[in-house]
C-alpha cells in the first residue's frame, strides 16, 4: 500500500517538475537547461511571499507570473537569436541558468531559506499514515495535467502549438505566427516551472542550487515523452515506479540514477520513446 502511494506521488511530483520543460521541448525542440534555475526562482517566490506575510498559496500565481515574465525575456533575447543553432541555444540556456543562480545567490545569499509549509500533517489512508502534502501534490499534478490538456486540445494557442510540433514549416505556411507561438509557449513552460518550484518547497530545501538535482531526471523523462503530455504522464509513472522499486528493494543510490540510466536505454532501443503509443 505504502509502495503504491509512494509510486503514485513520486510520479506526480516528477510530472509537476517536468511539464514546463516538456512544453518548451515540444515546440522549440530544445532542452531548456535553465529549467533548474526556473524551479529555483519559483521557490524563492514562496520565500518572498512568506516574507511579505501573505498566504503561502499566493506564491503560486506569483511564481507563474515571474517565471513567465523571465521566460519571455529569455526567449526574446537568448533563444530567438539562436533559432537556427539549437545546440547553441541549449548551451545558452545553461549559461542563463548559471547567471540566474548567481543572481539569486547575490540577492538572497547562499543560505537555506525558511518557507512555510503549504499543507502540513498526515492523513490516514487505507490503513497507513501518509504525508498529506504528497497526496495534495498528486491532486495538483492531475489538475495541472488537465489544465495542460485543455490548453493543448481546446484553445487556439494549443492548436497552433500542435501544428508547430508536427511541422513548423507547414504551420508557418498556413499563416501561423510561429515566432509568437514559440514565445508564448516558452513563457508558459517557464511559468509552469516556476509553479513547480513553489510546489517543491514543502519537500526540499530552498537554496540557490535546489533546481539542479531535479534537472537530469526531468530531461530524460521529457526526451522519452517526446512532446506528448500523455506520454510524459506514462513515463513519470513507469520511471517513477522504477525509481521507488529500485530504491526500496535494491538501493536508494541505484534508485537515484535509475531514471537517467533506464531512460537512456529505452531511447537507445526505441528512439521515439513512449510517444509512439
Amino acid at each position: 500500500m505504502l509502495l503504491t502511494l509512494d509510486i503514485l506521488t513520486t510520479a506526480a511530483i516528477l510530472f509537476i517538475v517536468s511539464i514546463g520543460l516538456l512544453a518548451i521541448f515540444g515546440v522549440l525542440k530544445i532542452i531548456n537547461f535553465a529549467h533548474g534555475a526556473w524551479l529555483t526562482v519559483g521557490a524563492y517566490c514562496a520565500v518572498v511571499t512568506a516574507k511579505l506575510g501573505l498566504n503561502p498559496w499566493a506564491a503560486l500565481p506569483l511564481a507563474f507570473a515571474v517565471g513567465a515574465a523571465l521566460g519571455g525575456l529569455a526567449e526574446h533575447f537568448i533563444i530567438r537569436p539562436l533559432y537556427r543553432r539549437p545546440l547553441d541555444a541549449i548551451l545558452a540556456t545553461w549559461g542563463l541558468g548559471i547567471v540566474v543562480g548567481q543572481l539569486v545567490t547575490l540577492a538572497f545569499g547562499r543560505d537555506v531559506q525558511l518557507t512555510p509549509n503549504l499543507y502540513a500533517g498526515t492523513v490516514e489512508i487505507l490503513g497507513v499514515d501518509y504525508s498529506a502534502y504528497r497526496l495534495v501534490a498528486f491532486g495538483i499534478a492531475l489538475a495541472i495535467g488537465t489544465l495542460f490538456a485543455l490548453i493543448i486540445e481546446r484553445t487556439r494557442l494549443g492548436l497552433s502549438a500542435r501544428a508547430v510540433i508536427m511541422n513548423e514549416t507547414l504551420a508557418r505556411s498556413l499563416g501561423i505566427d510561429t515566432g509568437r507561438v514559440r514565445l508564448v509557449v516558452f513563457m508558459i513552460g517557464a511559468g509552469f516551472a516556476g509553479l513547480a518550484g513553489v510546489l517543491l518547497t514543502p519537500l526540499t530545501s530552498v537554496d540557490p542550487n535546489m533546481g539542479v538535482s531535479w534537472l537530469i531526471g526531468a530531461f530524460m523523462l521529457v526526451m522519452v515523452a517526446d512532446a506528448s503530455y500523455l506520454a510524459l504522464a506514462a513515463a513519470c509513472l513507469v520511471f517513477g515506479a522504477a525509481q521507488v522499486l529500485i530504491s526500496t528493494f535494491v538501493s536508494p543510490i541505484l534508485g537515484s540514477i535509475a531514471i537517467a540510466v533506464l531512460a537512456a536505454l529505452v531511447l537507445r532501443i526505441s528512439p521515439k520513446g513512449f510517444s509512439r503509443a
Partner: peptide
C-alpha cells in the same frame, strides 16, 4: 542503514522503509 546520493532530493523510499 540507508544512504541517498548527496544531491538526491527524494527520500520517499527510505522514509517508507523507516516507517515499516
Amino acid at each position: 542503514e540507508e544512504y541517498l546520493p548527496m544531491d538526491g532530493s527524494d527520500w520517499t523510499a527510505i522514509i517508507s522503509k523507516l516507517k515499516e
